[in-house]
Nucleic acid binder design. Structure first.
Lengths: 147, 147, 147, 147
DNA sequence: GTGGTCTAGACCACA
DNA sequence: GTGGTCTAGACCACG
């Protein structure tokens, strides 16, 4: 998978890394059980410090997207406790909705944004709704780019 | 308006301040044209340093929620360029939707979160839809043709 | 004359006032010998503090656009020492030209800007060239005079 | 590059710093992609406070002369949107041209000032016209598709 | 009285 | 080591 990092962003690099990987999972470029590149390799690929990659993996683990396997390294393993997820998303969404309201966006406007993003990224969703999950590894097309 | 700051949060104080004020605008606790407390005043009120408040005001200005009037100080003045707003919100929402998809939340789940938040905070929205807005500048001498 | 003040500008009000008045002179809305409004009246008209108007008048006097008459108040009286003027303009122009160069604007681009502004504001210039002003300089291509 | 600060000037130090650096870019003493000294370093070098340098860098970033690279610090990166640049320059030039007109300077006089300054500072211009620019980002990993 | 600027010194997250 | 944040206290220009 190709990871885009903007070194001039105000977002921390490890944070961008997390987000990109989460996006990769959402778009089925990474699938459950897949192994992420080693810290050192990914760091070299992107041209960043090893510590930074390490931090990203640690955060992903804490947030339940990855588990650390002693032999394989970081392995995708999405923890989907719906109630907890909703609460998390809700909390992060408060400032965004507040801004939307201030800018005179209606809930329909926001709904369109959400739908647009689901259309764009929601590969995982399609699978889920076709009941293909959680029969976990149903990988006919999941030849993820490079590791 | 009562502003709550969590000093043990990992979110920067000035950032919390920004969010609280934006929330205040969304819920009509602050309305367009209203003057915010002076940096010193607000700093004293919530027990933080003047400069921290100043930074919050500066960010709010830059993001188009406030303008600095040389006579009155910081004045609520929401810049509602819909197109720009949508783009901003969309960008900040990408990681959230990605996470939602990973956690198997459907777009309907997310829609409910959005609606819940609109119900909770959307005072401003109600006004807007009743046509009471926009009256961006109330002051007779405050809206010069060019900046 | 109508004076436009932007209270949200980063430029000080007295400074804007000065610039507007100078612009008024350039466009012949104020002419030599004309009396400016009293400090109090202008302050009331614009809705600003008397001190601010006072400061503007003081600066205009120092810069040689106005003289203070004990009975009439501030009187337009433009001091046009060409050599001194050139040196002043040159100094203020340095950062602008530096910026222009950085942005890849050619000297022709800047020349066009200058000409555009002369076309827009140069009432005074027309008089000068018609010989209505102190015959002085009626030379279309004179001494370089710059550093 | 040697930066000269006049501590007795009425111009803010951070503003002088900005102007000096812009001048440095114009004269090719700084070139695109070059890394500026760290805030602490530069502050020590010229004997001012870290925060003052920081403010200068922040302003330069906001005005599109510099970007903040999370790995390298402040990097010269001139944003040359010609249309925007012209509008900016034009606005700052209005008071200068107004003054010039008042002082009976012809457009030719001003043109000479402009040319003089271009002759003195326009190193960057020469390169640009030889086609050596634009190569805005030299770094292979520094130019992500989206910010 | 306001915000803007500058200084000084501190801690922390990031890389 | 970097910049980002926060604090504290000071002076000044502006209004």
């Amino acid at each position: 998978m190709y990871l885009e990092i903007d070194f001039s962003s105000d977002e921390a690099i490890y944070q961008q890394l997390c987000n990109q990987i989460i996006l990769g999972i959402a778009t089925s470029q990474f699938s459950d059980g897949e192994v992420l590149p080693s810290v050192r390799q990914l760091a070299d690929d992107i041209g960043i410090n090893m510590h930074t990659v390490n931090k990203a993996y640690t955060v992903l683990k804490q947030e339940g997207f990855v588990r650390m396997d002693r032999r394989k390294g970081a392995v995708i393993s999405v923890d989907s406790d719906k109630k907890h997820a909703i609460e998390t998303i809700r909390k992060s969404m408060i400032p965004l909705i507040a801004e939307a309201i201030c800018r005179n966006l209606t809930r329909e406007d926001v709904g369109e944004i959400v739908n647009g993003l689901y259309d764009e990224y929601g590969e995982y969703e399609k699978k889920a709704q076709k009941g293909e999950l959680p029969s976990q590894y149903r990988d006919e097309k999941d030849n993820p780019a490079h590791a």
